[in-house]
Simulated assay, not measured.
Amino acid sequence: MTKLTLGTHPYLLGFEQLERLLERNAKIGNEGYPPFNIEQTSQNSYRITLAVAGFGEGDLSITVEDRQLVIRGRQTDDGDERVFLHRGIAARQFQRSFVLADGVEVGEAVMENGLLHVDLSRAEPETMVQVINIRKGG
């Protein structure tokens, strides 16, 4: 028996790109740091919130690369000036990636109380009906 995938299912035409996106997202390998929330803030808007304690605005970068929202954090090293008796606050670099659907746009990003909020919105899709004329064959 042959396993059907999105790209080979007879009623799903042109979904090969979606299948590639799913495969790519499975390979991203996001670890559990930093923790994050995703909330729906209205019918067509979302907010991703990352807990980035210890990071400043200059330590973070947000980019959209090939329909993927990529959030990176890299703290600057203070050198050997500080001596820690216990170090429980993570100070490591990270990269978090989120695949964006067509029509989803990244809005503003706000840093507040150690939380990075990234707002997303989705444009309302237009309903379209297309009539195809049938011509008489030769």
Rank of each mutant, 00 (worst) to 15 (best):
M1V: 06
L4G: 05
T5F: 12
L6H: 00
G7F: 01
H9M: 08
Y11N: 12
L12F: 15
L12T: 07
L12N: 08
F15V: 08
Q17D: 15
E19L: 14
R20C: 06
R20A: 14
L22V: 05
A26D: 06
A26L: 14
K27W: 14
K27M: 15
I28F: 15
I28A: 15
G29T: 03
E31V: 04
G32M: 08
G32H: 10
Y33D: 04
P34D: 13
P35Y: 13
F36I: 04
I38S: 12
S42F: 09
Q43R: 02
Q43T: 12
N44F: 11
T49Y: 00
L50E: 07
L50T: 02
G56K: 03
G58E: 07
G58D: 11
D59S: 05
L60S: 02
S61F: 02
I62S: 02
V64D: 04
E65A: 09
E65R: 05
E65Y: 06
E65G: 00
D66N: 15
D66F: 06
D66L: 10
R67H: 05
Q68G: 03
V70C: 10
I71G: 07
R72P: 00
G73Y: 01
R74P: 00
Q75N: 09
T76L: 13
D77G: 03
D77T: 03
D78M: 13
G79D: 03
D80Q: 11
D80P: 00
D80G: 12
E81V: 13
R82A: 11
R82T: 12
F84E: 11
L85H: 02
L85D: 01
H86L: 12
R87D: 11
I89E: 01
A90I: 13
A90V: 14
A91K: 10
A91E: 10
R92K: 13
Q93A: 15
Q95G: 11
S97D: 04
V99F: 11
V99H: 08
L100C: 10
A101C: 00
G103I: 05
E105Y: 10
V106M: 09
V106P: 01
G107L: 07
A109K: 09
V110W: 06
V110T: 14
N113S: 08
N113E: 14
G114A: 04
L115H: 06
L115Y: 10
L116F: 11
V118R: 02
R122V: 03
A123Q: 13
E124K: 07
P125A: 06
E126W: 04
V129H: 15
Q130E: 09
Q130C: 03
V131A: 05
I132N: 03
I132Q: 05
N133F: 08
G137S: 05
G138K: 03
